[in-house]
Amino acid sequence: MKKGFDKLSVRNSRKIYLIVYLMILALVISIAVAKISGREIDELTLKVVGVFLILAIFFTESHRLNTYYEVNPHSIIASKGIFSRTTRRLDLVAISDANLRQNLWERMLNYGDVGVRTFSDDSAMVIKKINNPSMFVDFLEAKTRRAKSQRN
């Protein structure tokens, strides 16, 4: 979560890929245990594990880089895509409220979804799986209040 004076930019939390990281760890540990106990490790096995690790890291990072959210003094921006990008911009003055959704697991790890509603639409934008969502909501609400007061 990058925070400048007036801007907050976030991406998906890496915590959502915890299961993938645990899979990687399980494979690395099993190879290490085999090596330490003097077993011979097949070359094909090492290649298969290597390919799985590379693909796992590649796809998790690609998925994470696919989404980008930003709150600036005027709007909230949701951007999706790496090569072909779709960007949605929502004026802060149009926002009615924001809600926070976390299940038990997400509460334990402090990440979750923030739903941003506008006066005209029930659920205008969902900021998905970001770290420290309550801080994001606080920041958004502060910016929204400021934008509305400046307009008035």
Partner: peptide, 18 residues
């Protein structure tokens, strides 16, 4: 699908190594 692939790779590692 990812979990099934992981199970396959993990089983392969355990079988070939141990």
């Amino acid at each position: 699908l990812v979990f099934v692939i992981f199970l396959g790779v993990f089983s392969f590692v355990i079988y070939t190594s141990f």
